[in-house]
Structure formats: structure tokens, C-alpha cells
Design a protein around this nucleic acid. Structure first.
Lengths: 196, 196
DNA sequence: AATATAAATGAATATTCATTCATTTATATT
DNA sequence: AATATAAATGAATGAATATTCATTTATATT
């Protein structure tokens, strides 16, 4: 029995995400992916049933991996400020250390694959974060508000900074680099918005 | 001379955006678009040079139209709070009244078309907003910070709420509707974050 | 070392898709 | 009303693209 080459499987996954981020869904094909990996297209069909399956499986695995990283060292029982700071730390680290995956998952959000990925995997993630927020409200650390409002104020600025960082191109002319100073400066603003 | 049917041209534009939002770049084809419009594919090639041209032209027109709406009644010389409030009003109205266009333009952001659209059209928009922010800093209404930080805190929460609204699916189980209460409640939080 | 088994492949195949073409149709101008 | 002109069309055409297949290759097990 010949064993499947796990390095090759991993290569396919990496190159698939890279290619999708680089040329978008509108340009992505199985043949291009095979060429990029320097393997036969047929091999892709040993690993995956078809193109949809390839994209979906990779998306699921990566979404799960990323949400695990984002929950590392996170305890929904800690104080609001400590917990939120930990979340910013985890999420920034996670996205900056996994730029391709982060951009790939971002891209999925406006595709037909979104539903299946976000519907299943990200649930545990949502539950933990929901508990954290409910705690903060019950303890009177923040004012009661809808989860969506909270989420939008607490995290959207972070995701947006990361996007600026990846895009390179920014509002002014010069490329934007997300420094620790900018990241934690923004965090303080967000904290000010949410704390009573 | 037979005149071009302008209703048909408009129909093509609408259906193109609808279809792209519905089935993503990965599923969008010229034949599907023609069928959706109940016209011949060949007609599409009278209006547009090719598929890329179709997507790009529609994107450019809509991006310009939307950014005009967002600058209506906006004066970069007014106070920070008044100006920011006006921006939230304009942008929320614009996106909620043009849901398809808003989602279509959002989708472009992670495609290869992004660069051309955002590079050219949105410039005037950026200049006006840049001036507004510089004014606010010079007057001492907000602390000096990078444009990207400012933008991320000032607007990312709004865009995120709108996205929740469009997605229907939210963090909890029940669909999220962006009410005036949620919108302006969030605005107050953002204001608190940015004001000295 | 021989065997069996699945991996991996290069070259098809079949399908989908973008684009074109030969005609027909509508209408503005005369 | 006749003419000219571009719009609009249905049916191709050819190029991409997804997927399969007949072989070959590597390796775990015997």
C-alpha cells in the first residue's frame, strides 16, 4: 500500500488558498491549482470529490483551526476588559500570523460557501463569546445591548485595521502597516466606547 | 436608426448585481445573466465588450453613484460630531435603500476588480473625508491618530451592522434587523470612543 | 524479494462558457 | 411610406474547464 503524501495534501491546501486570494473566485480553476502545485489535476480528485468539495473542506478545516486559536487562553468568566484585551490579542495574532487563511476566509464571506462554513464550525466560538458578553452585562461592566451592536463596536474596528494592513493600499497614499501602537491605541478607543 | 432600449440596459445592470450577490463570482456566467433578463446573450455583447467590461463598468457606475449619495449635504467644515452624524445618516440610508448595490460593491472588495474600482472612483470621496478628519484634529475635537485608525473606529461598526442586517443570520438565532435604535445607539458609542 | 494496494499521473473526454455571426426587427430620419 | 441604421436575436463556434480513465509508480505488508 502506498501512503498518501501528506506534504502534498498540505501543499494543495496552501496553494488553493493562495490562488483564491490572488485571483479571486472568478479566476480560480482546478487546472491552475494543479499547475501551481506542480502535480496532476487528477491528484486533486483523489483528495477531493470535486471543486466545491475542495473549497468547502479546506474552508471548514481552516475555519475550525482559526477559531481554536482565537479561543486559546480565553476564559469567558474573566472581567470584560481583560477578556476583550485577550480577544484582541488572539485575533490580531491569529490573522497576522495566518494572512492567507485570514484573507481566504474573508473572501468566503461573500460567496455561496459562506453558509455551510459559518453555520457549522463557528458555533462553539459564538457560544463562548456570547457567554462572555452576557457575563459582562450581568456584572454591570457594560450597558445592555444587542449582541450585534456589541460585536460591531468591539471587533469590527480590529478586523478593519487588519484589512487595511493586508490591502497595503490605505486611505492616504502610503501603505498602512498595523503596528502594536496602532492596534492597542485603537483598542483603548473601543474600550472607552463600551465601558460604562 | 433603432434606439437602444434603456430599460433593458438598466435591467441588465440590476440583474447582473442581483445574480452576483445571489450566486457569487464562482457561479456567475453571461448565459445565466441573459436568461435572468430574458434576453439574448448576444445583446449583452452589444452593451459591453466582454464579461470583465460588464462587471467593471457596472461597478464603476454604481460606486460613483453611491459615493455621490454618501456626500450629499455633507460639509467637511462642520463640527466633528455633526459631520460624523451626517455621515452615518447618509451611509446607512444609502446602503439600506440600495441593498443589492451595497452587497455587490462589498463583494467586489475581495475580487480582482477591486483595484480598478476603488482606485479611481472613490478618490474624491476619500479627499473630502480626509479633509473633514484633518479639520477635526486641527480644531482639537479629536485626538490625532492615523486616518486608518479613525476610519476603523468611526465607520467599521456601521458597515458591520449593515452586514448583519443583510445577512439576516446573526450571532444569536433570530435574524437581526437594523433598527434606528440600534443604529443611533451604536453611533453614540462610537462618538464616545472618538471624542476627547 | 514478491505482492498487493492505493497514490499519482498524462492524456483524454465531456461539459460549460464566453464570444461571434448571419438574420431579423424596430425606429428615427427622409 | 420608404430607407437606413443600429438593436436585438437564436443558433453556432471555439476555447476553457471540470472531471475521468487507463497506466505507471511507490510503499507497506507478507
Amino acid at each position: 500500500m502506498r501512503a498518501r503524501d501528506l506534504n502534498k495534501v498540505e501543499l494543495v491546501k496552501q496553494k488553493a488558498m493562495e490562488l483564491l486570494v490572488k485571483i479571486g473566485f472568478e479566476g480560480f480553476t482546478m487546472n491552475k491549482l494543479a499547475k501551481e502545485c506542480k502535480i496532476s489535476v487528477a491528484t486533486l480528485y483523489i483528495y477531493y470529490k470535486d471543486k466545491d468539495d475542495l473549497i468547502l473542506q479546506i474552508a471548514m478545516e481552516e475555519a475550525e483551526r482559526m477559531s481554536d486559536i482565537m479561543l486559546e487562553d480565553f476564559d469567558p468568566e474573566v472581567s470584560f476588559e481583560v477578556g476583550l484585551r485577550q480577544q484582541w490579542k488572539n485575533r490580531a495574532k491569529c490573522m497576522l500570523e495566518n494572512p492567507i487563511t485570514a484573507q481566504f476566509l474573508e473572501q468566503l464571506r461573500t460567496s455561496t460557501y459562506q453558509e455551510q462554513v459559518y453555520g457549522t464550525i463557528v458555533n462553539n466560538f459564538k457560544i463562548t463569546l456570547g457567554k462572555f458578553m452576557t457575563n459582562a452585562i450581568n456584572r454591570g461592566e457594560i450597558n445592555p445591548m444587542q449582541l450585534e451592536v456589541y460585536w460591531s463596536v468591539a471587533f469590527a474596528p480590529l478586523y478593519n485595521l487588519v484589512r487595511f494592513h493586508f490591502d497595503g493600499r490605505s486611505i492616504g497614499g502610503k501603505p498602512f502597516i498595523l503596528t502594536d501602537k496602532a492596534l492597542w491605541g485603537t483598542f483603548e478607543l473601543v474600550l472607552k466606547a463600551l465601558k460604562k
